[in-house]
Design a protein around this nucleic acid. Structure first.
Lengths: 207, 207
DNA sequence: TGTACATCAGTGAACGCGCGTTCACTGATGTAC
DNA sequence: TGTACATCAGTGAACGCGCGTTCACTGATGTAC
């Protein structure tokens, strides 16, 4: 039963968005085309009306997922009045842990990080752009130096957050996982700007 | 052709060590039992004389890989005279980039990070122990506060390194990937103790 | 110590299954007149 | 505007392939006497 062009375009987009979620949640390799289509409410046969191959879907899903996490970070940033508030809001939101085992549920660097390194050039390019965007948005909040210093600090913060969420998801002990997230939050957010969280026992010299 | 007990035990260990390398390099899902056995110089049929299932191999390979990265970190630490030297040596070695796309080739948190989060309880327990060991070894080098502060700083450093290596492997632009590794090194290693690497243009206030 | 037999590490073919992909088919949509 | 036909989104069965796993077989190892 043929659908209108508008319907078809909408279906295509739904498949990509569903894939972005499924891949992040269960991994790229572990998520089949049929699984994505079923989650989108379709039968698997129609997949190739929209995409040449699974890897094309992976690329587009990566682009969509990257745009989503960048958007979330922008929204977190918009919550804070000062830039310090904005940065704190970003870190708190990214490393928020309803359950530590599902830290940063939106971020593809966490959900499919090690798999992304083995994807094709197009997908890795999309991931690279996503990382650059994350750094840019966060770099705007971590000023206090020249542009390059801000960018460098943003790179550091993004890497620390990605590493922390990755580790927290792997760790088999919920308390330890939560502690890891708290430790990394404590080190990323300057103590004088932190809100609720208790300060470290001995602040000590800067690292 | 039956082998002696000693030979069989040696074969088993060879399979586990081969698997540790193959899984880290190509991913758990993407590496078949037959592939591991072939890489170990065996035919795939004999696999189940040694292991009940692939997931048992995954667990043991994870244990082996964790022991290896912890051992490497210990050896890096042994190179430095002071604790600051030791910490610098650990970070420099972990984030050394012959090619940035292969950062931290030994560390399972990087090579199979997102896949580890979806493995069974035994494997995640092995990974959790490995993380705790990494934190303990590094914690010994980042003193300057009480034990808990040192542990917390070690957790932060380990997460930042894992995140940096994960990102560097994904990024499609070798220069950007190398910059990420340098940025994270620069932030982890206090400027006054860094050796060769050029200092950031404006050191600025501590973060 | 020597012999006869059970054990089992390793081989290679085979198994069922799920994967990515293809295809014949359906019927609503888009288009040409 | 109405009609006749081509297009194509979506369905469901089928394809070849590689995966994890099993199995009959081989022959050296281990063991009981």
């Amino acid at each position: 039963m043929r659908r209108s062009k508008a319907d078809a375009a909408q279906t295509r987009q739904r498949i990509v968005e569903t894939a972005a979620t499924e891949f992040r949640r269960h991994g790229i390799h572990a998520t089949g085309v049929a699984e994505v289509m079923a989650a989108a409410g379709l039968s698997h046969g129609g997949f190739y009306r929209h995409f040449d191959s699974k890897s094309v879907l992976v690329t587009e899903a990566c682009e969509t997922a990257m745009a989503a996490i960048v958007h979330t970070i922008e929204q977190s940033a918009a919550q804070g009045g000062t830039r310090e508030d904005a940065f704190r809001a970003i870190v708190q939101a990214y490393l928020a842990c309803p359950t530590a085992g599902e830290a940063a549920p939106e971020c593809p660097f966490v959900g499919i990080g090690s798999e992304l390194a083995r994807t094709d050039a197009e997908t890795r390019t999309a991931a690279t752009r996503g990382f650059a965007d994350m750094v840019e948005v966060i770099g705007e909040q971590v000023g206090g130096g020249d542009a390059d210093a801000a960018r460098s600090r943003a790179v550091f913060a993004v890497c620390a957050m990605i590493g922390a969420a990755t580790v927290a998801r792997i760790i088999n002990d919920p308390d330890l996982a939560a502690t890891v997230l708290e430790d990394v939050k404590a080190h990323l957010i300057p103590p004088d700007t932190r809100s609720r969280a208790p300060r470290r026992r001995t602040p000590k010299a800067s690292t």
